[in-house]
Design a protein around this nucleic acid. Structure first.
Lengths: 194, 194
DNA sequence: GTCTATAGGCCGATAGAC
DNA sequence: GTCTATCGGCCTATAGAC
């Protein structure tokens, strides 16, 4: 249930974002959204054409937010390594998983180009951004020169997304943190005296 | 639809495995299972107590299969690195995702300890097994000694699980392969003449 | 904008005949 | 073992009053 200071359509979008995160597209019904938003049937269909339309609005906003949060960390201060570290160590509600990556397991989202587009776009942009930072690290000699920046970026992003999977499987965040420590250890600049 | 040489309960389990992989627990209905298995309503409820019971049988089998396949590769011939490489490069239907990891995004599976158990167990065992192999690599000096075997194992597993997410987001297997190349590059024994 | 009424169909399951 | 019948309830809308 959302605060009355939000407009009905806002409350509908926010409720949908929440339910999409927790239950996915297939598991989220208009009725459940309406109840969570404190809105009636007719109200929802007045503001949105239907379930896919409402889901699209919710997915777009979630993707935008995630992109902005990642960008903020990756374009911050510090060396390439420290920014990657900041991205990996940023606070996360690990057991809830990634609200964007989660959609990737949804057959109806993946099958619909319109619903999939925002998911594809954020993850693609994030990958590109990580590639740039990794390239900086390679250019400055901070990272081992025999590596490919694109591949490093994909591995970093996959570690995060896969970390969620492992954590949710066991019901504890430990595997996520372990995976993050692992990738950070592998990326860490080798100290000559190591 | 499955071959008539299989018993009805076999066909029901196999059909459920397929649907669980594609649509998850929430998105899989008994009716859809029955149609795919070529079995009637009464037939399904004769062999299984209900949807959760049938799903459990299917999940257990899928987990078992995955565990056996991974074990086969990891206990094969070769150095620690080459076995990890074999695990990472093993043939996969990348765009379908991991039939076990997928269940991790299902609220009803995660919420039910009985349904979650097989998922937790295989991924845990796989992590343990990868830890052993990684430790071998550390002991032999094949892998950089400043790393922790458990963390490396978690990172490897997360890379695979996350690779599926990235691939499904874009609709192509490329990001998965890129992530695998990345982790392999990071793990690769440094040649002194590098 | 929001409400209630109504719709046809699927959901997960049970009952009982064969 | 398998079949058909039946159940109450939810799913995703649509219609039309207010």
């Amino acid at each position: 249930m959302y605060s009355a200071v939000m407009s009905t359509s806002e409350r509908l979008i926010e409720a949908t974002r929440e339910l999409l995160w927790e239950r996915g597209y297939v598991g989220t019904s208009p009725k459940a959204v309406q109840q969570a938003a404190g809105a009636g049937q007719g109200s929802m269909y007045h503001h949105f054409a239907g379930k896919p339309d409402l889901a699209l609005a919710a997915i777009r906003r979630t993707a935008e937010e995630m992109g902005a949060a990642a960008e903020a960390v990756l374009s911050g201060e510090g060396t390439a390594y420290s920014r990657i570290e900041a991205y990996l160590l940023r606070e996360r509600d690990v057991l809830r998983g990634c609200p964007v990556g989660r959609l990737t397991m949804d057959p109806e989202v993946v099958a619909d180009p319109v619903l999939r587009a925002p998911v594809d776009e954020v993850l693609g942009r994030l990958r590109d951004r990580l590639t740039e930072v990794a390239q900086e690290g390679l250019d400055s000699g901070e990272l081992s020169a025999s590596l490919d920046a694109e591949d490093i970026a994909a591995t970093i992003l996959a570690t995060v997304q896969g970390g969620y999977v492992l954590a949710r499987a066991t019901g504890a965040r430990e595997p996520f943190d372990s995976a993050v420590r692992g990738i950070l250890g592998l990326l860490a600049p080798r100290t000559p005296a190591g």
